[in-house]
Amino acid sequence: MSKYLLNKFLYTVDRDPALVERYREDPVATVADWEAEYAPRLLNCVAGEATTWLAFDDTERAALAAHDYPTLFELGAHPFLTLTLFIAMFERDHGEPLGFQREYAERLAHMTLPYPDIST
């Protein structure tokens, strides 16, 4: 299990407008391709200095591939990263201001304190 890698996915997809669109439209393929191509990239180093050991477990991969943000919350992904990326993908589908953000809160309504640990 790698909360760090979940966060790395959310972080690197969020900052790449083309990847945001691709993840919105085709999450299964985007997650698979990201894990192969992007997951090993050490962000501040040249391509040859790749990390060799990072991988999602099946639960993490499935949650990302299903756009399942309640499960990402339960897995301890950083809530700010998840929220920011999912707003970028889905706020546009809601007519009312903050409509998506309120739906997001409702889908997490079963979560009670203490929330899952987000330490990495």
Partner: peptide, 9 residues
């Protein structure tokens, strides 16, 4: 609260 059930109340 951001990204949790109590957000945007």
């Amino acid at each position: 609260e951001l990204g949790g059930p109590r957000q945007f109340g």
